[in-house]
């Protein structure tokens, strides 16, 4: 079995004509981390719900750990662990009680059950809190416990829906190393969704960017970045300017592409950032535009996302938040 997760043409429509998934296909190699990226409302969680048998697609098919999600959901459930976006912990129960109940519904009993719970408590650094009620846990502790609960029955395939959202930088780094370890040492196949591009970049072997229910880009992080030429130049301006004015001013700068102005931020691509920046600054100065700061960077997944979905993450998020 090469792909522990495989989906073809998934479509899901919710009442009120919301097309959450509009023909999503993806494949995750066994033993690898697969990243699913996209703005709010893109359909990431919907894809996870279908792959974990929680909801049924209107069309398409999916196989997880070699089992058909639609025909044999019970077999899929035994093989997978799932950490949903919404925690799902029992707040009145202690961390240990949460783990024990989870193990029991998977048929674990007695010493095996207890020692597995203890092992996970230790591994996730929850020893001090294990016998306290979850209600008193910090957000980061709850998220760790979420993952521990998902791993309780030693699944082959693990789904993590935004595992690091709301974590402080230190907890996030811990979570990253845990995810890397699970895929590396334990050979789990992991599908994770995230809003953090750098996270997908460092963890995922392959990733897909979804927007409005469609996969808009798919490949390894390097492939995706390689498709973009040159460096990204971002200029923060001191005051808002008219798009057209700036564009005209920059028309004369050689080797500069994809100029876009949004509020007080100007973005552009250049074959070589170092060579173009002085010219860009000179052109802006000639036009009387005052510059607050300039940054040059190698292409990031952010730029990949911009390229494919045609709008910045923050922008799409704003859009999703509007009623």
């Amino acid at each position: 079995m090469d792909n522990a997760i495989e989906a073809r043409g998934l479509v899901k429509t919710y009442r009120g004509d919301v097309r959450a998934l509009d023909g999503v296909s993806l494949a995750a190699e066994t033993g690898s981390v697969f990243g699913l990226l996209g703005p709010n409302g893109a359909g990431k969680s919907t894809a996870v719900k279908i792959l974990t048998t929680l909801s049924r697609p209107d069309a398409g098919e999916a196989f997880v750990a070699g089992h058909d999600v639609l025909r044999h959901p019970a077999r899929v459930r035994l093989a997978i662990g799932c950490v949903a976006q919404k925690s799902g912990l029992d707040l009145q129960a202690t961390g240990r009680e949460n783990l024990l109940l989870q193990g029991r519904v998977y048929g674990m009993r007695g010493g095996v059950l207890r020692s597995r719970a203890q092992e996970l408590i230790e591994r996730f650094g929850l020893s001090d809190a294990a016998d306290r009620v979850v209600k008193g846990y910090s957000g980061g502790m709850q998220r760790k416990l979420d993952v521990a609960v998902g791993l309780m029955h030693r699944p082959q395939v693990l789904f993590l829906d935004e595992p690091t959202t709301g974590l402080d930088p230190e907890a996030r780094v811990d979570m990253w190393s845990e995810i890397a370890r699970l895929a590396g040492d334990e050979g789990l196949t992991i599908l994770m969704t995230t809003h953090y591009l750098e996270e997908a970049d460092s963890l995922a072997r392959r990733l897909a960017i979804v927007d409005r229910g469609k996969v808009v880009a798919e490949g390894t992080p390097d492939e995706l970045k390689g498709e973009l030429r040159g460096d990204a130049i971002v200029v923060e301006l001191e005051e808002q300017v008219l798009d057209g004015e700036v564009r005209r001013a920059l028309d004369t700068v050689p080797e500069l592409y994809d100029v876009a102005v949004e509020a007080r931020t100007l973005r552009a691509r250049a074959d070589s950032g170092a060579r173009s920046v002085p010219a860009v600054l000179a052109a802006l100065e000639a036009e009387g535009v005052r510059v607050a700061s300039v940054t040059v960077s190698r292409p990031s997944l952010d730029d990949v996302y911009l390229q494919y979905a045609g709008r910045a993450f923050s922008e799409a998020d704003q859009e999703a938040k509007r009623p």
Binding site: A84, K86, L91, Y106
Partner: peptide, 10 residues
């Protein structure tokens, strides 16, 4: 809280 969904996935 997502507790029901967690059990439905199990």
């Amino acid at each position: 809280r997502g507790v029901i969904d967690r059990f439905l996935v199990s």
